[in-house]
Amino acid sequence: MFPRTLSLLVAAACGVTSVLAEDAAPLRLPARERVETAQDSGVFREVNKTLEWDPHQTALVICDMWDKHTCPNAEERVGELAPHVNEFARAARAKGVLIIHCPSNTMDFYKDYPGRKLAQAAPPATPPVPLKKWCYVDPTLEAPLPIDDTDGGCDCARTWKKGDPYPWTRENAAIEIAEGDAITDSAEAYNLMQQRGIQNVLVCGVHLNMCVLGRPFAIRQLVGEGKHVVLIRDLTDTMYNPAQAPHVSHFAGTQLMIQHVEKYWCPSVLSTALLGGQPFRFKGDTE
């Protein structure tokens, strides 16, 4: 059994899977995860449960939803996804959830924004595990990724070359930064969560096999810090090229990554948990 699975079982036994404030209507999140049927079996079954989270102890992290990208198809999909991320953020904000915008490497653009100063003002906190600039795959915690992204994952031709400046300058403009939201791309996110008593974190954005797992404000780090983490599985994408193993469509590759996260890191939910209606689906996903 992987350590994360064991820790979740211990947490559940201790009754700490969610902490609800008496004066807050809880967020009810129909969550899905994958649990190993027997220790070290490598066989997983789908498990569904409803989480109840106090919205005032919950944050939404929006990961690297940039205005531009090195890969044209990835940029197009971010542009398609951004209005739906904004709609979810608006609904979460209205319920009292803290919105943390995390467009990495663009903090100069936001240096005078109140949300940037809010994140910077959070006092330093000592985490249970060291904060890292990037959390790589640790074979003691998870299996190898189910998709081969060693080519960079771009599924189309691109003019950007490794070593060129990154083209992004800010978060996609379709995502509103409202009063009370925070802006960061570093361990400041953890400091802010500790200052606000945030125990629960919803994560959306791109890309699931890279930044959404590896960034200092993202899934691996948050789980290591003891936060209750949930991926919004219809508000994410991958950097995956079908020319690489396992040679499935781009969107099938994304589903494989979602299952990987559900096995080794955290449950997932759909945006419909707050929005109702139908889950978001990319126009190119016809499977």
Rank of each mutant, 00 (worst) to 15 (best):
G79T: 02
Q120R: 14
L118S: 00
T58K: 12
S41V: 06
A273E: 01
C211H: 10
S271H: 01
V97Q: 05
V19K: 14
K162C: 08
W134V: 10
L222W: 04
G205T: 00
F280V: 05
P124I: 09
C63S: 15
L81F: 02
P246Y: 10
H247W: 07
A31I: 09
P267V: 13
S7A: 15
G115V: 03
S41I: 08
S104E: 15
H84W: 01
C154H: 08
L213Q: 15
I183Y: 00
T58R: 12
A182H: 01
T70M: 14
L9Y: 11
D181L: 08
Y240Q: 00
Q221N: 09
R233I: 02
K95C: 04
E76N: 13
L222A: 07
S104T: 13
N241L: 02
T184N: 04
P165E: 05
G277L: 10
Q199E: 14
C135G: 01
K161I: 05
V16R: 14
D285C: 06
G42T: 04
T58Q: 12
A218M: 07
L274S: 00
V261W: 08
P246S: 09
S271K: 01
G153S: 08
A125E: 04
T254N: 13
S186W: 09
M210F: 13
K49M: 13
C71T: 02
R215M: 13
D54N: 13
R4G: 09
V248I: 12
V203Y: 10
T184Q: 05
I198M: 13
P55F: 10
N172W: 00
P30S: 07
A189Y: 05
P124Q: 12
M210K: 11
T5V: 10
R116P: 01
H69K: 08
E75C: 12
F109L: 07
A11D: 14
I147D: 00
V223Q: 11
A273R: 03
V97A: 05
K162P: 04
C102E: 05
L118H: 04
I232R: 02
D285P: 02
L8K: 14
L60A: 08
V201S: 11
F44P: 00
A125F: 07
G224P: 01
V16M: 11
V43M: 10
L9C: 09
F109N: 09
T286P: 01
P103Y: 06
L208V: 02
L275W: 03
K133W: 12
I198C: 12
D285T: 04
D155N: 15
Y110I: 03
T58M: 09
A125W: 08
I175M: 10
P246K: 10
P83Y: 03
W160F: 13
D23T: 14
F217H: 14
H247A: 11
N48I: 03
R281Y: 03
A143R: 13
I100F: 05
D155I: 03
A31R: 10
H84F: 02
D54A: 13
